[in-house]
Simulated assay, not measured.
Amino acid sequence: MAGPAEPAGSTAGRAPGQRTIVLVATVVSLAGVLLIGLGLSGIVGGDPEPVASVRHESTAPAGGLPLTDVPLSKVAEPMRAARPTAVYIPSIGVAAPLMELGLDAGGAIENPPFDPPNQAGWYRYGPVPGQRGAAVITGHLDTRTGPAVFARLKNVKRGDQVQVVRADRSVAVFVVDKVEHTPKRRFPAKKVYASLSYPGLRLVTCGGAFDRRAHSYEDNTIVYAHLAAPYYPGG
């Protein structure tokens, strides 16, 4: 679903090769530390045929980590390293587990499974969400039977929160800076995999019209965000 990937600079151990990234997504529920999370997907050779008149159901619990006293517009200092385990986007009802994504034999980000449809993925050769650099999470838009984890990603707005639960029970709380819709043939790899001086996050899925001849969506939806509030249980 995404476009060709490029190195993310010194913050990424390895970067995917020049090849089309394919994504899609679904929403499911899961409990987490004060926050709920689940999550993402990755890349595939072609997208499934879109399903007409499928009703999107979300079992994600309402609410999230209460951060009303935190200045969310400020870029926070990097967090210590901890493997991401779930992603939660309250504004669109996403609560999904995260799997790790590496590289396939062709040098592109490896394919995530279509089943379960709520599965999202974190590119493990890039930065860890919460640390300095552009962490990348991908998820499918849909499957052959219905919507997937990032089915509503295009509805995310500037200022929305993206919460990433990590293995040490900490939560990296990001705030969305912008949402971009771009043709796959002009995938902005340098921006997505940029070497940032601050902790950033990119969420990527498919979008636009479905090309039945190519069996692929024509565009990508990309969300750009910055770390606004690191949360550690117990203070």
Rank of each mutant, 00 (worst) to 15 (best):
Y224L: 14
P48H: 07
A96P: 12
T68K: 14
V204C: 05
A2L: 14
G130M: 10
V33L: 13
P90I: 00
L203T: 01
N220W: 07
G106I: 01
C206M: 01
A96T: 15
D115Y: 11
A167N: 11
G39R: 03
G46H: 15
A5K: 10
A62F: 08
I92K: 06
A60S: 12
V192S: 03
D211E: 07
S73T: 14
F187P: 06
P78V: 04
D177H: 07
V192W: 03
D69M: 09
D47S: 06
F114E: 15
P183M: 07
V24S: 15
L23W: 13
V192H: 02
V162L: 11
V156H: 01
R14L: 14
A151S: 15
A214L: 10
G235R: 13
F174V: 09
G235S: 12
A25R: 12
E77R: 08
V223W: 05
R124S: 06
L103P: 09
I222N: 10
E100P: 06
D104A: 01
N155L: 13
R19D: 14
T205S: 06
S91F: 11
R158Y: 04
A167F: 07
G93E: 05
T205K: 08
Y224K: 10
S58A: 07
C206P: 00
V54E: 12
T85K: 08
T59N: 13
S29P: 13
P127D: 02
G32I: 09
G146K: 02
G64M: 03
P129H: 08
M99K: 09
T20V: 08
L203W: 01
A105T: 08
P48T: 06
G208M: 04
V156N: 03
K190V: 13
S197F: 05
D168W: 04
G139R: 06
A15H: 05
L101W: 01
M1K: 04
E110T: 08
G130I: 10
K190H: 09
F174P: 07
G3F: 03
A12M: 04
S216T: 15
W122E: 01
R144N: 11
A229D: 11
P188W: 14
V204Y: 07
K154L: 13
G234N: 00
